[in-house]
Design a protein around this nucleic acid. Structure first.
Length: 870
RNA sequence: GGGCAGGUGGCGGAACUGGCAGACGCGCGGGACUCAAAAUCCCGUUCCCGCAAUGGAGUGGGGGUUCAACUCCCCCCCUGCCCACCA
């Protein structure tokens, strides 16, 4: 007989809803201990929640429910990351408005979350596309702009020809658009950049203190990619210009036998001598056409000689200048000194094109014939390096730097964040372009010092004050704060233009405006912010709460309520997918640090502890995807087995962090467990009810009279207390799978023994099981609770376990002879070592192995093992 | 090529600080109930030999430390994920 999960779950969901989910609300400034536990809020796609969402959301839900039962003030909010390309693309294809698509999707997500019994504080619900919310997204960007952290530049960016927008490096996957898989082309474009590189060091440094998975920290480290090295110039043979290079191996400079430039290198065409020119130009054109993917998979090195020569500053040798696409314009200076003997890439390049290979670092001070590059930096000394021979690599660097006048520098792989999207469905940039102001600023040429200190220094020009941002971006002025939010205009046509301008550019009435500075006719920025903007501070909005978001006033200080922000301080626990490691999690840390610098926040990092839930794979063990047809639809499974079963199954599958395949058969295990709990509850609370008769085997047992057995009562009580302890401990360490096993074990033992203890003990013990089960299966637990009590089970206290009850009265020893188990011995726990050994020796099974042999040593481990060594 | 995480029955996975490997669940085999099926309940289930077990083997492979190794050390193999001509 199965319980009617659908009826029970709907019934309680309705009651919770009627109650406005009050027991799930967090209180700002409550005296209780606070805990902020956050899920990465979803992008509301048209597909609805998938089983992967449910995994992470259930984990935090169990955690939250457990902490609430332990008297914590738990902040566990949910919202929607609602701006973004997919909704817009869908809207275009289906001729509807992105806003209405998004609204519909959010509604669906919301319903599904309620269907899963997730205990969110819905009073703090937010959507990033809500003007009340993005008002503050714009406000933060505006502050960044004023303080010189936003700048405009025209440079080649990643352009997706299908989505018709620029994308950040982070948004690419194998050189393709993450969203539509089109090949990306590099195209110069006017673009706003946020100076995340100013924060590179702090983003790297502060990783140390975070309780995050090593992998994620490592990814961020690599993404920031800090490397120490030296920068210096190569002069050119017979020319004025110089070519700057960056190297981390200055110790190898005497072995630099050629110079390689990236195909995009500005000086390159000039350097190509007439007889080489056509080949160089052809090479440049070729590499431009190559997709990044092709450039990546191509192992073979290619390149062309320019005909020009440079002078090695260390030994004044003439070395040839080549162009090759293994050198990237985006990193360092776009020019590399080729040290064929000590760099793998340079080595293969030199081999292929017959360039000179000079060994300058040697592990033993002698020369060798190399068949691969020797790249070890820690154990070699210099040779063939003039005055520096015999110096070890590391000290040699500084000496050579002094010798040739190289500058110690640090390079980062991290680039500034390309912050524009030429699309409609995003936050409008709060910036205006004014020709008049441009003239004023350019004519007065103020000299903004390029300092990394955040400052809101103002510059006076013609009695008007300009911010640092307005000086370094002449003509661009920030919107007045009182004019925020700058709302997205309602439009009929929001298809991307493809001209590099956002669809907003077509709306003259919106674009034309007055300059807030000088009142002249001006134009608005028509690009919008990238999808990642809204998620950079949503955790702060949750903490502030809906009252703060609805504040109508212009008082910034009131909005960023210090008391509230200090109370919640940081997200204690953040759970989400690892795919955000180098995007959301870096961007949000960046904004957080910026707000810290503004004095709005008092702690350096937003997310103290992070856990990544593992992927739930399809039943075939492969990543779920529509094209593979292995996507599991949670709605169907919930329909069949109920939300409680789905929640429990996903937690029971294995450790939260690991990837594990979905097995629809597997869900029946927890489903049966819940059914047994339900059935047992019915039996305990409604013993005489007729529906029990259906189960015949149960009836025969039911006919037996209760025979109270003291020993069994004690045994089950001990197991109960063990279970309470284990489930609580396991929830805190996020080992939900073993917590569930423990409950199953208890139920098995309890069912077997249920007729052997008093009615009172039986009810009490069973209700305690219902308590510990309630974070996992909130609907069923609530239903059973309601059979004997009023109110909500989630408002009850988590049961206490008694350490004294946990103690066993007898212990079981494994008796080993030479490390092999030969027998077991059950004995009173209080027995002394001697007693145990005495008893163990006389066991017939053990005696067989000991007979006629001398006992050399006896190992005794309390409550576990005795080992006779013979 | 680099980094991270892993490798335990037919499957998902347990195993505290080195102390009885395989908890819990799925699946499978057998049985009860049923006209029958579903559901439910009971028994069994690492492999090999065997009527049996108190016999033998066993946590990717090889070696080592130890009374005792899934766990610690050395070497090797394999899988997944992320990053990647980063100078």
């Amino acid at each position: 007989m199965t319980y009617d999960h659908s009826k029970i779950e709907k019934k309680w969901q309705k009651i919770w809803q009627k109650n406005k989910f009050k027991s799930w609300q967090a209180r700002n400034l409550s005296k209780k201990k606070k805990f902020y536990i956050l899920d990465m809020f979803p992008y509301p796609s048209g597909d609805g929640l998938h089983v992967g969402h449910i995994e992470g959301y259930t984990a935090t839900d169990i955690y939250s429910r457990y902490l609430r039962m332990n008297n914590y003030n738990v902040l566990h909010p949910m919202g929607f990351d609602a701006f973004g390309l997919p909704a817009e693309n869908y809207a275009i294809n289906n001729k509807v408005h992105p806003a209405s698509v998004t609204e519909k999707n959010i509604k669906h997500f919301h319903e599904q979350m309620e269907m899963m019994g997730l205990s969110y504080d819905w009073s703090r619900d937010l959507e990033t596309c809500d003007p009340e919310y993005y008002k503050w997204t714009q406000w933060i960007v505006l502050q960044m702009f004023h303080r010189g952290l936003a700048y405009q530049s025209t440079r080649p960016i990643n352009w997706c020809p299908s989505c018709k927008t620029g994308l950040a490096n982070e948004d690419l996957e194998d050189g393709k658009c993450e969203r539509c898989k089109s090949d990306i082309i590099r195209q110069p474009m006017r673009q706003w950049f946020l100076k995340i590189t100013d924060y590179a060091d702090r983003l790297l440094e502060d990783l140390k203190d975070l309780d995050w998975p090593e992998g994620v920290k490592e990814m961020q480290k690599n993404w920031i990619g800090k490397s120490h090295g030296y920068e210096f110039d190569f002069s050119l043979a017979g020319r004025e210009e110089k070519i700057g290079v960056f190297t981390t191996r200055l110790d190898t400079i005497f072995g630099a036998t050629f110079l390689v430039l990236a195909p995009e290198y500005p000086l390159l065409e000039n350097l190509a001598l007439p007889e080489y020119r056509s080949r160089v130009l052809q090479y440049i054109a070729q590499s431009k056409n190559k997709t990044d993917l092709a450039r990546e998979t191509e192992k073979e090195k290619t390149g062309v000689f320019t005909g020009s020569y440079a002078i090695n500053p260390a030994n004044q040798k003439r070395i040839p200048i080549w162009v090759a696409d293994y050198v990237m314009m985006g990193y360092g200076t776009g020019a590399v000194m080729g040290v064929s003997a000590h760099d793998e890439r340079d080595f293969t390049f030199a081999k292929k094109f017959g360039l000179e290979i000079i060994e300058v670092i040697s592990p033993d001070g002698k020369g060798h014939i190399l068949d691969e590059a020797y790249t070890d930096i820690d154990s070699g000394t210099l040779i063939n390096s003039g005055p520096f021979d015999r110096t070890p690599s590391i000290p040699a660097q500084e000496k050579i730097a002094n010798f040739i006048g190289a500058k110690k520098t640090i390079h980062y792989k991290l680039e500034d964040w390309g912050f524009d999207r030429q699309r409609y469905w995003g936050e409008p940039m709060p910036l205006i372009f004014c020709e008049n102001c441009k003239k004023s600023v350019e004519n007065s040429k103020p000299n903004p010092r390029n300092s990394k200190q955040i400052s809101d220094k103002k510059f006076k020009i013609k009695n008007r004050e300009y911010s640092l941002g307005e000086i370094i971006n002449p003509g661009w002025v920030g919107l007045k704060e009182k004019d925020l939010p700058l709302t997205l205009p309602k439009v009929k046509y929001y298809e991307p233009t493809g001209t590099g301008e956002s669809p907003l550019a077509n709306i003259e009435s919106w674009v034309k405006t007055k300059c807030p500075k000088c009142g002249f006719l001006a134009r608005r920025e028509t690009n919008t912010m990238p999808q990642w903007a809204g998620s950079c501070w949503y955790y702060l909005a949750f903490a502030l709460g809906d009252k703060q978001l609805k504040l109508k006033g212009k008082d910034v200080k009131k909005f960023w309520n210090q008391k509230i922000l200090k109370y919640w301080k940081e997200v204690d626990f953040y759970v989400g997918g690892v795919e955000h490691a180098t995007r959301h999690l870096i961007y949000a840390r960046f904004w957080h640090k910026f707000l810290f610098d503004l004095g709005i926040l008092s702690n350096k990092e937003p997310f103290a502890k992070l856990v990544n839930q593992g992927l739930i794979l399809g039943p075939d063990g492969e990543k779920m995807s529509k094209s593979r047809g292995n996507v599991v639809n949670p709605d169907e499974i919930v329909e069949k087995y109920g939300a409680d079963s789905v929640r429990m199954y996903e937690m029971f599958m294995g450790p939260l962090e690991t990837a594990k395949p979905w097995d629809t058969n597997g869900i029946v295990g927890v489903y049966r467990f819940l059914n047994r709990v339900h059935f047992l509850g019915k039996e305990i609370f409604f013993q005489k009810k007729t529906e029990l008769r259906h189960a015949k085997s149960a009836r025969s047992k039911q006919d037996q009279k209760l025979v109270v057995d003291k020993e069994t009562t004690v045994k089950i009580k001990r197991l109960l207390h063990q279970t309470i302890k284990k489930v609580g401990d396991d929830i805190l360490s996020m080992q939900f799978n073993t917590a569930i096993s423990a409950m199953m074990e208890f139920l098995n033992a309890f069912t077997e023994a249920k007729d052997k203890f008093s009615e009172k003990d039986r009810k009490e013990s069973f209700l305690k099981l219902v308590f510990v089960l309630s974070p996992f299966a909130p609907h069923l637990s609530q239903e059973i609770w309601s059979w004997s009590n009023q109110g909500f089970v989630e408002l009850q206290k988590w049961p206490k376990y008694n350490p004294a009850t946990l103690k066993k009265q007898s212990s079981v020893y494994a008796i080993q002879v030479n490390g092999k188990v030969r027998d077991t011995l059950k004995i009173q726990a209080s027995s002394s070592q001697d007693e145990v050994i005495k008893k163990a020796k006389v066991s017939a099974k053990v005696f067989k192995w000991l007979a006629g042999k001398k006992i050399k040593q006896i190992i005794f481990v309390k409550d576990r093992i005795i080992n006779f060594v013979v």
